[in-house]
Design a protein around this nucleic acid. Structure first.
Lengths: 400, 400
DNA sequence: GCTGTGTGCAGGCACGGTTCTGCACGAACC
DNA sequence: GGTTCGTGCAGAACCGTGCCTGCACACAGC
């Protein structure tokens, strides 16, 4: 059996050799081929042709053997694999991508403010979300590339060459897409699957989106504060028009109207960390000072705590505090601060799974809309009177 | 002038059309070409051929016009650009990569523990470092891909297809490379530039590396604690053999020997968040309990603080505390804890610049070794007696 | 007029795989 | 013994772009 195979292999090798020689150097034609074309180009590494020659088979057979396709006896398959291993053969990702049209790369982009490639005020959220997305992508054989959004929407344009056109993507995750983002519309026009983190505008026909139920989260927090004895609840919110800010603020105003409380809120540009401290101060300096505050952004907790100290307000006796944050640091502040976690890890995972489903054609016809729950981690800053334990925080950074 | 150009263009278009027809359908040959080969393949998008046909020029001219090469009059150049724009032409990144050998992608990988794609205990460090590396790469026209290290070094192998072989990289940043990491040696063998964050083993001929001066940092902290009145300084360290742990521990032991103090330290597996709390407890439960502790890892600060409370030790009166962390949360604990920042943003930036220099051939012959300074942020937990302010912390999360 | 010289652009190969098609050959069957 | 059928593999057409080569033409100089 093996002997028969060996004879076959020899014959094939001879034939191949003959064909190769007579083809690559057609005697009468002028001398071209600056490199002898038989040696190793490819920057010194072996190509599929070298493997084929060394194994005494054709290129097709090498490709089939390594990719588990075609009809090949196990003897040939293992022989080719062995030779490829010996030569240290690594297939060229670029060539494969060109031929198959699939690169195994998915993009991740997010609206930017200023120089940072992603929103600084949501750094913890984004870091955790991106980490989960990276994990999920790798687990399914994809790699994740972080790409910049266009610098603001000004005429300046991003500095340097366009990175977007230099990477072959199979699909893209977009965080908090805006309706007029040229990148997103370009992606959609080109037919690439796009999945968004955050409810997109109706005019963006993304394949799927994932978002928290921000309205329900805000209602839950306000109810919780009211149950803890708050009479006038204030809000620290942003001036940006992204979905998160808009939905949360609207939910706050609706809640106020429903329970008959006059809204008490301050807005500030959320991308400016200093403005947050100033806004926290403003909120507590008002004549109609609230006795509870919910802050929409991560640094609001420490800012509000500092402002409360300046005004001599005790937390939680004089002021109840909740903020939206992913930082475990709020478990160890004095006092520990109740936080709303958006569970970015879950979102990053979900959004990646949906994108890869869409890439691999597993997607349903209609766009998938998935709403993920948030988690309220109740700590001292929002407990007053009877310590009513609702949800306890993990004592160490959650391993998600 | 324009008229003359138009006539030329018409002529060229006709010639091109003729050549196209006669070449793509050699009349006597049998009917192949399943798709008519004149329409748009490429998944519905326009290719360079379509642009050439629509502009009435050759493929070469399109390529030259768009890439700013060749000898072309401005009229032709702008005409081609206009047509390309009108057709929504986007060059194929895969084809360009295959042809030029440059993908514009750089990899980032780090030794893993368990399932996460990067070391969890150093999450804040890695997140900040990766963010800076991403920014730096994008600013120079590259995109960054996070890739997994091989799952442990066991025979199991990472689940799923090999992502490494599916992405074409121009170079790789490796965090804390181990000498026997098969990925790194494979990268080096293949001739790809590799730059490491963390001093590599001598057997790894990387193009460059960047690291903090860990020994100096540890000496600085121990001196600082001694100046604050510490008589017996303990260390919370890891069981791992990575460079950071090893150098820091050695520096501690050397310092102890120099000043004549008996070393007091506990080791624990740094990838296990629970083990850290237990080790902190063990350290403070010892009969030769230290009156100051330096913790090498991020969660050690809160863990030590909690342990101190359990033993009724006041910070800083009974126990001085310093830990290595990037978290701004330690500015608001009770009391605020002195931290050593490794400035991962600077490292991520430096390592990326060096890698791209190497990729673009700007690198010197000898490997570059760059040592970056650390920053000790002195807070209440290590000040005793006269409040000696050394370096003050920024009050908000530093914008780097 | 015939040969340099320079400009403007077309032809065509190469990059390194993947895959469709089809040939050769042995075996089984009527 | 010719006709199927199935197996094992080779040929060659792609994928879309970059770049090297070289032709055609215009113009200038002797």
């Amino acid at each position: 059996m093996l002997r028969a195979y060996d004879r076959l292999a020899m014959t094939a090798a001879e034939k191949h050799q003959a064909a190769r020689t007579s083809t690559s150097v057609p005697p009468p034609v002028a001398g071209r081929c600056p490199p002898p074309r038989g040696g190793a180009r490819l920057n010194g590494r072996a190509g599929i042709r070298d493997v084929a020659a060394a194994a005494g088979v054709s290129i097709t057979t090498v490709s089939d053997a390594l990719n588990g396709k075609g009809r090949l006896p196990d003897a040939t398959r293992s022989h080719v694999r062995e030779v490829a291993e010996r030569l240290g053969y690594r297939p060229s990702a670029a060539a494969r991508t060109l031929r198959t049209g699939k690169s195994g790369l998915i993009g991740l982009t997010v609206t930017t403010y200023g120089e940072e490639p992603f929103t600084f005020t949501e750094f913890a959220y984004f870091a955790e979300m991106a980490a989960a997305a990276t994990s999920a992508a790798l687990a399914r054989g994809y790699a994740l590339v972080i790409l910049p959004a266009p610098a603001r929407s000004g005429p300046a344009g991003g500095g340097g060459p366009d990175v977007w056109s230099n990477v072959a993507l199979d699909g893209t995750v977009v965080v908090d897409p805006s309706a007029q983002d040229p990148i997103v519309s370009e992606l959609l026009r080109s037919g690439l699957p796009v999945v968004s983190d955050g409810r997109p505008s109706d005019s963006l026909p993304v394949a799927a989106w994932v978002d928290n139920d921000h309205e329900a989260a805000v209602r839950g927090i306000l109810d919780h504060l009211a149950e803890s004895g708050a009479r006038r609840i204030g809000l620290l919110t942003g001036t940006s028009t992204d979905t998160y800010t808009r939905l949360s603020t609207t939910a706050y105003l609706d809640w106020c109207e429903r329970v008959g409380q006059e809204p008490v809120y301050e807005r500030y540009p959320a991308h400016d960390p200093c403005a947050g401290a100033v806004a926290a101060d403003r909120l507590l300096a008002r004549p109609d000072r609230p006795d509870a505050v919910y802050g929409l952004f991560d640094p609001n907790g420490t800012d509000l705590l500092a402002a409360a100290r300046r005004y001599g307000l005790r937390v939680p006796e004089d002021l109840l505090l909740v903020c939206c944050s992913e930082s475990p640091a709020y478990a160890t502040t004095a006092p520990p601060i109740t936080t709303l976690s958006l569970k970015p890890g879950r979102i990053g995972n979900a959004v990646t799974q949906l994108l890869i489903d869409a890439i691999e054609g597993l997607a349903p016809a209609r766009p998938v809309q998935r709403v993920m729950p948030t988690e309220l981690i109740v700590r001292t800053s929002s407990r007053r009177g009877s310590a009513r334990t609702t949800v306890s925080a993990p004592r160490a950074p959650a391993s998600e």
